[in-house]
């Protein structure tokens, strides 16, 4: 039976290091490092946390530069300023809270790292964009390298025709998918047979000269 003791880091206190807690923790001072708790972690309005916070319940009313992972809930109160990812089964963001980062509800698996979970979320968002963009460089199938640069530049320029022709993008998607892999090996093949051809000529030239 772990004793749930509550701890308070008062306003004038600075802690640089790792904090591991079995009970509740209130942070009103500065904390740099990492904070892990099995209970509730509350960041007061004067609190300044430059670390990842991991707890069962997280209540943030101060400034946090780090990822918030709650195994039960994360609540950002009015006055909270958070730069970092937030993940918990239950997330609450009250009016007045400021947040810049990814928000992911859903099961927080114990093995997944904080970088693995949010990467899967934007991957599904990026996928439909990449299928739309190859419709633009259909006119340039040979240039395999600038295909990655072209859609970034061409997307804002040709945003109007891309939106105006969503129906055309559907059949066009199949064409660049087939053309793109064919264009890449065609570029690489021509220089290869040049070298053995020269070697054959030199051998024949040596045999002819010897005769």
């Amino acid at each position: 039976m772990a004793q749930h003791s509550s701890s308070i880091i008062a306003a004038g206190t600075v802690i640089r290091g790792r904090i591991t807690a079995t009970g509740d923790l209130e942070i009103h001072g500065h904390v740099e490092g990492s904070v892990t708790s099995e209970g509730t972690v509350t960041v007061g309005p004067e609190g300044l946390v430059k670390s990842d916070l991991e707890a069962e319940h997280l209540i943030v009313a101060g400034a946090v530069a780090g990822n918030l992972r709650g195994s039960e809930s994360v609540v950002l109160e009015d006055g909270a300023r958070v730069i970092g990812d937030v993940s918990a089964p239950s997330i609450g963001i009250r009016p007045g809270a400021k947040l810049r980062g990814r928000v992911a509800t859903g099961a927080v698996s114990p093995k997944a790292s904080t970088s693995a979970a949010p990467r899967t979320a934007p991957a599904t968002r990026v996928a439909p964009r990449t299928t739309v963009n190859p419709s633009v460089p259909v006119t340039r199938p040979v240039q395999a390298a600038p295909v990655k640069a072209a859609p970034v530049k061409a997307a804002p320029v040709k945003a109007a025709p891309a939106q105006a022709a969503p129906l055309k993008a559907a059949p066009v998607k199949e064409a660049p998918v087939k053309e793109a892999p064919k264009a890449a090996p065609q570029v690489k093949r021509p220089p290869e047979p040049v070298v053995p051809v020269l070697q054959k000529r030199t051998k024949k030239a040596v045999k002819r000269r010897s005769r």
């Binding site: 701890s7 308070i8 008062a10 640089r16 009970g23 490092g33």
Partner: peptide
């Protein structure tokens, strides 16, 4: 400014610096 209370279940590995009172009931290394 109130006292900083580091309760019994808290382990801190690092530097702690405070302007006021500190009460340690847990583990502190640093």
């Amino acid at each position: 400014m109130a006292a900083t209370v580091i309760g019994a279940g808290i382990t801190i590995e690092g530097e702690v610096s405070s302007d006021d009172e500190v009460i340690i009931g847990g583990t502190l290394r640093g």
